[in-house]
Design a protein around this nucleic acid. Structure first.
Length: 462
RNA sequence: GGGAGCUUAGCUCAGUCGGUAGAGCAACUGGCUGUUAACCAGUUUGUCGGGGGUUCGAGUCCCUCAUCUCCCGCCA
């Protein structure tokens, strides 16, 4: 394979004073009358390589005026740099323009606002910020598989098109091939989905959890990692219509095992990225969030907080702070409450456990007090809720009772209920919002800026 | 789904009391023998988001539509 920028940064010592050939894009250029500098990058490494050129080039005039974004091929000698900003550089003997970049190119040699860059999402991966973000996103995805594989978890591909019509995790996008202008109707005038592609109403998945629980009962420790879809009209910095989720599920385990795994995983992911993307992380620390590295390193060396919902509510009430929503046992934690807890009270990630049953899903295990369920949310400073999980209700009678209480139909969950008939056991799992992890890792504040082509209400451009 | 704010040059933004359009950067031209978001000099750039209204006169005030952003709800 051809030499890359990555190769040179890793082993330039060995190649000093040898002839090299390198292709890439012009990131910036600075020229004088008889010489000039080009910062070259081919995307394989965060840092650029400086190319020095002089009047010995047969196309010196053309190269002097080269526009930012053009792709070039450079031949020259790798030498120690006289400048102190870089240890080495290429002294060019020839430079070929492979693809000229039109001066209309919208990316300039200056900072652009993230809002503007969203309007040119097809070009933004060429900026420093987005190259760093998407490199970290890639590393995080790999680290997730690495973590679970090392722990002997089995990766399960749960379906993206689902036929279970009430997963209870949010509004769903329908999947249909019916003619929307003239759909078949049943006798009572409703749309007749028995005529649809799958012979029933189907949707894009909102969670792989119910499906992955089945594999949990076969492999003990499993996880899914894939796209999920929510048709909520959420207009916030941390919600997207299409996002990725990691959902591990563990048999013969309880809520404490669940939190232990979640904490170990989050720390593993952070450590992996810090070790494998030091340049990108330094960039975030300098330009996006000044306290990022300090906060992440502190986190690695501390235990996450663990409090019950009841204790958290007491802390909110006792704080005396004026909230828009008055804290009171039984209400769900509002965003302002969550942020206050993780950012002001504990100043680190904190698990909140054992929520009132009325505000949580039907499958969460009823505690002995009859009032709370074995749920846990992980709140982190700056992002808020990053993980939601629970110990699952393993007792058939109790699960049926909860389904009825919540106004759901047992028939819709017949195969899920069967798990409680065929060798049931206490088990647990959680969902980690992948993008929220990327946000926490990079300090980037808007979920639209950690997804290559984000989908949000009224926006599916590119 | 509820609420608030924004929209002025390619980008980032200023525009006073309602009086007829500005800066920096970019681009372009020229200069410069080691630059580091290079520097210096000059030149070019406008449907002031769309529509309507008030007024002698609207970027500025009012109505309306749209976009974007932020907050809340939903959740990851």
């Amino acid at each position: 394979m051809a030499l890359t920028v990555y190769d040179l940064w890793k082993s330039y010592h060995e190649k000093l004073d040898t002839e090299v050939t390198l292709s890439g894009w012009v990131r910036t250029s600075r020229t004088s009358k008889s010489f000039g500098f080009i910062e070259l990058n081919d995307g394989t490494h965060f840092k650029n390589i400086q190319v020095v050129f002089g009047e010995n080039l047969n196309n010196f005039d053309e190269i002097s005026k080269i526009s930012l974004g053009s792709s070039i091929n450079v031949n020259g000698k790798l030498i120690k740099s006289p400048g102190d900003k870089q240890p080495f550089e290429i002294s060019a003997s020839s430079i070929e323009i492979l693809g000229f970049c039109d001066p209309e190119f919208p990316l300039q040699k200056k900072r652009h606002s993230p809002e503007y860059l969203r309007t040119i999402a097809y070009l933004r991966p060429r900026t420093n910020l987005f190259r760093a973000v998407f490199k970290v996103r890639s590393l995080l995805a790999f680290a997730i598989h690495k973590f679970f594989t090392e722990k002997n978890f089995v990766y399960v591909h749960t379906p993206i098109i689902t036929g279970s019509d009430c997963e209870g995790a949010g509004e769903m996008f329908g999947v249909s091939t019916l003619d929307m202008n003239n759909p078949p109707r049943t006798e009572d005038g409703k749309i007749d989905y028995s005529k649809d592609f799958f012979g029933k109403q189907t949707n894009l998945t909102v969670s792989g959890q119910l499906a992955v629980e089945n594999f949990c009962m076969a492999f003990r420790n499993v996880y899914t990692f894939g796209p999920t879809f929510r048709a909520e009209r959420s207009n916030t910095q941390r919600h997207a219509s299409e996002f990725w989720m990691i959902e591990p599920e563990m048999a013969f385990s309880d809520l404490n095992d669940n939190m232990d795994t979640a904490e170990e995983m989050v720390k593993y992911l952070i450590r992996y990225v810090l070790e494998n993307a030091p340049e990108e992380m330094e960039f975030f620390n300098q330009w996006v969030d000044k306290g990022l590295l300090e906060r992440l390193n502190f986190l690695l060396n501390s235990d996450f907080g663990r409090v019950t919902y009841t204790e958290a509510m007491d802390a909110l009430i006792k704080s005396g702070k004026q909230f828009d929503y008055k804290p009171e046992w039984g209400i769900d934690l509002q965003t302002e409450h969550e942020r206050y807890l993780t950012e002001e009270v504990y100043k680190r990630p904190v698990f909140v456990t054992n929520y009132p049953k009325g505000i949580k899903a039907f499958y969460m295990r009823m505690n002995d007090d009859g009032k709370t369920v074995a749920a846990m949310d992980l709140l982190v400073p700056g992002v808020g809720e990053i993980i939601g999980g629970s110990q699952r209700e393993e007792r058939l009678e109790m699960l049926e009772k909860r389904i009825t209480e919540m106004g759901l139909k047992k028939e819709d969950y017949w195969w899920y209920l069967d798990l409680r008939r065929y060798g049931t056991n206490k088990h647990c799992g959680f969902g980690l919002g992948f993008e929220r992890m990327v946000m926490y890792m990079t300090g980037v504040e808007n979920i639209r800026d950690v997804i290559p082509f984000p989908r949000t209400p009224k926006n599916a451009e590119f």
